[in-house]
Amino acid sequence: MNNMMTKITVGIVVLLLMASVFVLFVARDEPARLPAAEANFAARSVENGALLFEGNCVGCHGVQGKGIPGVAPSLNSPEFFTTRLQEVGYAGSLRSFIEGTVNAGRPVGSGQYSAKMATWGQAYGGPLRPDQVSDLASFILNWEATAVGGEPQVAQPTPTPLASDASPVEIGTAVYAATGCAGCHGEPGGAGLVGPNLGGIATRAATRVPGLSAEEYIHQSIVQPNAFVVPECPSGPCAPNLMPATYEQTLSPAELDGLVQYLLTLE
């Protein structure tokens, strides 16, 4: 065999090897790989949605979506997955119902719930991108198995490690995070999402309502949100009845005091 023949043979062998390696290691696995990748992305979507829910939704819909009486409905109840669409007369899928509601909000209170849902989708002036709205829907829909299975979710708020001698400010910081204040007001010093941001609240509170000290004003704003509605919300003047008026019932006196003390540190 001469030099030229050797090279041609090597070339053909390499081509055949490539073709067989491709068929054996890529093409053969492809039909199984595609659905597996799809399932992975669906799972990651639930993970992303869980983080978004914690950051934005627990303030009204409660930790783990159990709902807050008088504020916003439960999202993990059997009714939500079985009869909700008929109740409201919605013809689309549950996913599109959730995404539509998250995107465009719910401008009308439904009688038993005080809060009107804000518009969360970017296209409607809210903070969430379309993929985030979709992730949120994936997370909410993932409750179906346990909800329809009839086992109500037991809320387990994240245990917050607070020493027994924690100062009121420390308690208040934890309450701000656990109650989901940031869901509407954002992180202090950042940007408000639905309600005004609370960075600098201690300074503003002192002069907001004549006759009320900063401490009294903040306390009143938490337990009676409609007593004085400030004009500067992220999307125009703040609307009354948007903030839940139930915190006097849901927070303990120590927690309420802590929250006030914490907010007073935000100068």
Partner: peptide, 21 residues
Amino acid sequence: FTDEMVFLGLITFILLALIIF
């Protein structure tokens, strides 16, 4: 020409192997 084709064949095979394995 033959040299070039065999060379490119070998390189392609290495690329493929790097990805597949």
